[in-house]
Simulated assay, not measured.
Amino acid sequence: MSTIKDVAAAANVSVATVSRVLNNNGYVNEDTRKRVVQAISKLNYIPNEVARSLFSKQSKTIALIVPDIKNPFFPEVARAIEDLMSSQEYTLILCNSDEKIEKEIMYLNAMKQKYVDGIIIVTSTLTPKHIEKSDIPIVALDRTISMDIPSVSVDNFEGGRQAVQYLKSIGCKKIAHIRGPHTIINADERFKGYIDEVKNESWFSDDLVVNGNHQVLETTKVTKELLMKHSDIDGIFAGNDYMAVGVLKAAEQLGIRIPEDLSVIGFDGIQLCQLTSPELTTMAQPIYELGYRAAELLLEMIEGKPISKLHYQFQVKLMNGQSTKVLGVTNDEK
């Protein structure tokens, strides 16, 4: 494999001159530039990107750190980010943190050593101090970190309220909630939205809330236990679509008909909702728009442009599927 020294020798110039041609940085007369370009073509020389990043302290690379790549929400967000960044000739590195602060800090340190130009991160554990130490442009996605760190998210509290309001509107009389981990900000906000709607209902009790921990198999287990304990539950708000799939599985295993006996609504709007049987009703986030806006924001920071707005909060929208009863239609009419 040819080196930059081989190119310099073939073009009869210094290594520094070849470097200036490669980086389009500094004056090189046209005849010399042509000789260097011809030597690069003849030797099939490919610049060492690591060496170039060490020289320029830039790598045209960004990182995306997510909690769980198995959750379909995150690959859909990643696609939007990659679409924009690749159009700007950036490479995307995907990191899976498992919601562990040790892994998030490890990735931050590793990305700094690799001269990554910026990071988009989904975290509920890092503090502003961790971000300040990284000294890299960072955008928080899906969850905010602090008022000083740019973020892109949705109104999870209002989305949770609207999910329960919809279940009430179609006639559900006893509504349970499958929540996400207590350590995750948006899981807490969706739970609070649920509580705000049911706290004054005569049927409400604390044991109508169980934790699915954003895991589909765990959700199936705890939902079966919940439905066997409360056979009169006729509505469930799952904290995300991934857990809603677990609710559908639990109902199937118990012989509970959806939506005739039990209406189920999720949260996120991932494409998987359209592939389940029945198709899931969900509070849909503008997933692609979230990822794209986070990428735009990060690019502005990398390029040193003034940030006119630090925090973007989008609204969710009801996406009607087949897992909830039809408004105004009784079971006997179905």
Score class of each variant (00 low, 15 high):
residue 1 M to A: 11
residue 1 M to I: 11
residue 13 V to T: 12
residue 19 S to P: 01
residue 20 R to N: 10
residue 20 R to A: 07
residue 36 V to F: 05
residue 37 V to D: 13
residue 49 E to I: 08
residue 49 E to W: 03
residue 51 A to T: 10
residue 51 A to Y: 12
residue 54 L to S: 04
residue 55 F to S: 13
residue 57 K to Y: 03
residue 65 I to M: 15
residue 71 N to E: 04
residue 71 N to S: 04
residue 72 P to Y: 03
residue 79 R to I: 13
residue 82 E to P: 07
residue 97 S to L: 07
residue 98 D to P: 09
residue 103 K to P: 10
residue 107 Y to K: 13
residue 108 L to R: 06
residue 109 N to A: 14
residue 111 M to Q: 15
residue 111 M to C: 15
residue 116 V to A: 11
residue 119 I to G: 01
residue 122 V to W: 00
residue 123 T to H: 04
residue 125 T to V: 12
residue 139 V to I: 08
residue 143 R to C: 08
residue 150 P to L: 01
residue 157 F to N: 04
residue 161 R to I: 11
residue 167 L to A: 03
residue 168 K to G: 01
residue 173 K to N: 09
residue 174 K to G: 07
residue 176 A to W: 00
residue 181 P to V: 02
residue 187 A to E: 13
residue 205 S to V: 12
residue 210 V to P: 12
residue 211 N to W: 10
residue 212 G to A: 08
residue 214 H to T: 10
residue 215 Q to L: 14
residue 220 T to H: 04
residue 230 H to M: 02
residue 244 A to I: 07
residue 249 K to Q: 13
residue 249 K to L: 14
residue 253 Q to L: 09
residue 261 D to C: 01
residue 265 I to G: 05
residue 278 P to L: 12
residue 297 L to R: 01
residue 301 M to S: 08
residue 303 E to L: 08
residue 307 I to Q: 09
residue 312 Y to A: 06
residue 314 F to P: 00
residue 328 G to Y: 08
